[in-house]
């Protein structure tokens, strides 16, 4: 059982941002970074499938600059067998279709039985990379998966697809396939500092694509949306008093 897991180092906005590049990109000084939550769930699912099968390999792949290696190190510390980083400077700000295309080149070479992606990334939330990747690989795809049961002999998997309102569709999919993973499938394991330190010595393969696909869109302009903010209360006691007033009003 060979499983490729696609992971992303996502940006978290820490303050009202400034924009650069003619207001087409966020100044990275305003971003903190962390592994994408959905991707950690995808990795956890992959590790469990590998371990239940008794053999196999989990390969983590990311598209990101050298700092994105910290996410790969985390994945290796969790138990991934191998890590690949894809990068060329033109990939900065790439959308899901561009990212899917470079991932597809690596996935094709790996010939996996299964590709797992997070259902979406926390920063761009396009929820499109996995579905696009499947199309480029000509694999079937099931999006927003909350359970995977493999039948390796039949080369199929039975998966749960989580629809709106908590309705679940149970469906069967032929392998190889791409699944996009929803949070909650299996709680990502805790990694010790020691495991991270050990993983830091692992070799990370770098793939540098020389041509990129057409993006789905181009950013014309970024802005900070104006929102009608809440009327802000001054501290715990005043908000508590407001809550009591509202709750009594609702009961009346």
């Amino acid at each position: 059982m060979k499983i490729v897991v696609c992971v992303k180092r996502v940006g978290v906005l820490v303050d009202d941002p400034e924009f650069v590049d003619d207001d087409r990109a966020v100044d990275t000084d305003y971003l903190d970074y962390e592994p994408n939550e959905w991707d950690l769930y995808a990795l956890e699912a992959a590790l469990r499938l590998r371990d239940d099968a008794g053999d196999g390999e989990v390969v983590v792949v990311t598209v990101g600059d050298d700092e994105a290696e910290e996410v790969l190190v985390r994945c290796l510390a969790m138990g991934a067998d191998r890590a690949v980083r894809i990068w060329t400077d033109d990939l900065a700000g790439a959308d899901a279709l561009v990212v899917a295309a470079v991932l597809a080149d690596v996935a094709r070479r790996e010939q996996p039985d299964l590709v797992l992606c997070g259902a979406q990334s926390a920063d761009a939330a396009q929820a499109a990379t996995g579905t696009g990747l499947a199309a480029l690989l000509a694999f079937p795809c099931v999006a927003i998966v909350t359970s995977i049961e493999l039948a390796p002999q039949e080369r199929t998997a039975v998966v749960h697809r989580e629809l709106e309102g908590g309705l679940v569709e149970v469906c069967e999919v032929d392998l190889p396939a791409v699944l996009t993973i929803q949070t909650g499938i299996d709680e990502p394991r805790y990694v010790t500092l020691r495991a991270v330190q050990q993983a830091e010595d692992a070799e990370i393969e770098l793939v540098e694509p020389d041509e990129l696909a057409e993006p789905g869109f181009r950013v014309r302009r970024l802005l900070v949306p104006r929102s009608e903010r809440a009327e802000m209360m001054d501290g715990p006691s005043s908000v508590a008093a407001k809550i009591v007033e509202l709750v009594r009003g609702a009961a009346a």
Binding site: L13, P17, F217, R218, L223, P225
Partner: peptide, 18 residues
Amino acid sequence: VALRRFYGGKVEAELEFP
């Protein structure tokens, strides 16, 4: 032209499709 948001809704983007 389409609008979507990034970073948990904190940045809005005007998108074009040349």
